[in-house]
């Protein structure tokens, strides 16, 4: 046992030393601006994948943006995330934490209706919506409404869907509200209309 222990110890010391050296070297050349923005779309997916392994998903609006920084660095250690994954998730959560000013905006005041550079509905869905709603529209996390339900969300008029997407929506039974614009503040009205069209064609009755 002693021999095994010594071998194990030597091996571990070697691993620790090499990681420490590589870590020290990397940190010395690292650009030190924090938090470095991550990838929003990857962050949405990694957020849905990582957090539910241990606990219920906590909505972006539960904490302030600065509180999410410490929370995500804490979770980096707990969940075994890489630094890049941590930044991606943080970017997604902070972007999703933005709410529209004012109480109840009218449809006319929501967003610019003349978005001529609308992205494809599928591309937006794959980047912004898929993490929670899933590739098949049935929902990737518990409590998310089933978009394929004949009498479900998509049975509402498009104007209602548009307002719900822009303002965000708390579904009954869902652990968290859908953030405004699905968490992606860059989306224009034309983008959202394209997504709604994609939802109808892919998941609608």
């Amino acid at each position: 046992m002693k021999r095994i222990n010594r071998k194990t110890i030597k091996m571990m010391v070697g691993v620790v030393a090499s990681l420490l050296v590589s870590g020290a070297l990397s940190s010395s050349v690292q650009a030190f601006d924090y938090p470095v923005p991550g990838d929003f779309a990857l962050g949405a997916q990694q957020w849905a994948d990582s957090c539910t392994r241990c606990h219920n998903l906590r909505g972006p609006a539960e904490l302030r943006d600065d509180q999410w920084i410490t929370t995500m660095f804490h979770m980096r250690l707990r969940a075994g995330l890489t630094g890049e994954e941590t930044r991606n998730i943080l970017t997604f959560i902070q972007a999703s934490n933005n709410s529209l000013p004012g109480g109840s905006p009218t449809k006319a005041s929501l967003i610019d209706a003349n978005g001529t550079n609308a992205q494809s509905g599928k591309a937006i869905y794959d980047q912004t919506c898929i993490a929670c709603h899933g590739a098949n529209g049935k929902g990737a996390i518990p409590g998310v409404p089933d978009l394929t339900d004949r009498n479900g969300r998509l049975s509402q008029p498009d104007d209602v869907l548009l307002i719900n997407v822009v303002r965000g929506l708390q579904s009954s039974g869902s652990p968290m509200a859908m953030p405004p614009k699905g968490g992606n503040p860059e989306l224009s009205e034309a983008d959202i209309r394209a997504v709604i069209e994609y939802l109808h064609s892919s998941f609608g009755p």
């Binding site: 990681l19 420490l20 020290a24 990397s26 690292q30 980096r76 250690l77 890489t82 630094g83």
Partner: peptide
């Protein structure tokens, strides 16, 4: 005290 050394290692 956790030192984030790089993207793949934190010294705790």
């Amino acid at each position: 005290i956790d030192v984030f050394m790089n993207d793949y290692a934190a010294f705790v």
